[in-house]
């Protein structure tokens, strides 16, 4: 157990827990975009910054990665922390002016678009947090998407920006995306969905007859879990 102070409150955290974990367990809210229980933290969005004081030194760290250590004093809302967080938000806002979530966060924290950060028009709503890439790799296990190029040209997508042969159309990337950058379109009847430029045929539930999952996804689950395809032909609500 690590004993430390967070916002003046003495708390204990399990070994290996991050400052963010400990804060959340104790009801202290820290805004984040790129962390998720199932895929862990990457420290990409930088919104979760906090100030860690240890002896005479104080530093700004990403709370989602910083381990809860004995004897540190964490401040999640100090003037310095808020200044950094506002700057991060200004930059995110300039990158993704169209993202509702970032607009809401900015409004909550009283952040206005900064004139010196020219708003991007070609980045969509992507903040390059890599959450979708990590999900596709760690949770889904197919690694159909990744980043390409670097610096200002960096984008998320399929290799060569073509239809991926390994994508199963599960839509986990679109689901997990904090800002809603990834678009998945389903036809009116629900018989197919389009994601990353590829259209997937949906399978119907054997019981209720509704479209419930892409055929490729069922095939993939059947193959990796060693379950016959017939066992997967019933949707969750009918099971």
């Amino acid at each position: 157990m690590a004993k430390f102070i967070i916002d003046g409150k003495k708390i204990e955290a399990e070994n290996g827990a991050t400052v963010l974990d400990a804060a959340r367990e104790n009801g202290i809210e820290i805004p984040t975009l790129c962390t998720h229980d199932e895929v862990g933290s990457a420290g990409a969005c930088r919104l979760c910054v906090v100030e860690v004081k240890q002896g005479n030194r104080a530093k700004i760290v990403a709370s989602c990665l910083y381990p809860a250590e004995d004897g540190i004093a964490v401040d999640t809302k100090s003037e310095r922390v808020m200044a950094v967080r506002r700057l991060v938000l200004q930059l995110l806002l300039a990158r993704c002016p169209g993202s509702g979530l970032i607009q809401d966060l900015a409004e909550q924290m009283g952040v206005k678009p900064e004139p010196r950060f020219t708003a991007d028009t070609d980045k969509g709503k992507c903040i390059l947090c890599r959450l979708c890439v990590r999900t596709c790799e760690q949770v889904v296990g197919v690694s159909a998407i990744g980043f390409s190029f670097r610096g200002a040209d960096k984008t998320v997508g399929t290799p060569f920006h073509e239809n991926s042969q390994v994508c199963i159309g599960c839509g986990a990337c679109a689901y997990i995306c904090p800002t809603g950058h990834i678009e998945m379109e389903t036809t009116k009847t629900g018989d197919s969905r389009t994601i990353w430029g590829r259209t997937f045929k949906m399978a119907t539930c054997k019981v209720c007859g509704r479209y419930f999952a892409p055929e490729d996804q069922l095939k993939y689950i059947s193959r990796t879990a060693g379950v016959p395809l017939e066992n997967l032909a019933v949707c969750i609500s009918c099971r």
Binding site: A144, P159, S164
Partner: peptide, 22 residues
Amino acid sequence: ALIFLNEVVDVPLARIYEVATF
């Protein structure tokens, strides 16, 4: 060649493309 490399090496094509463009 990259697509073929993906078949021989146990690295997803998305990851190969990431490195190749980086």
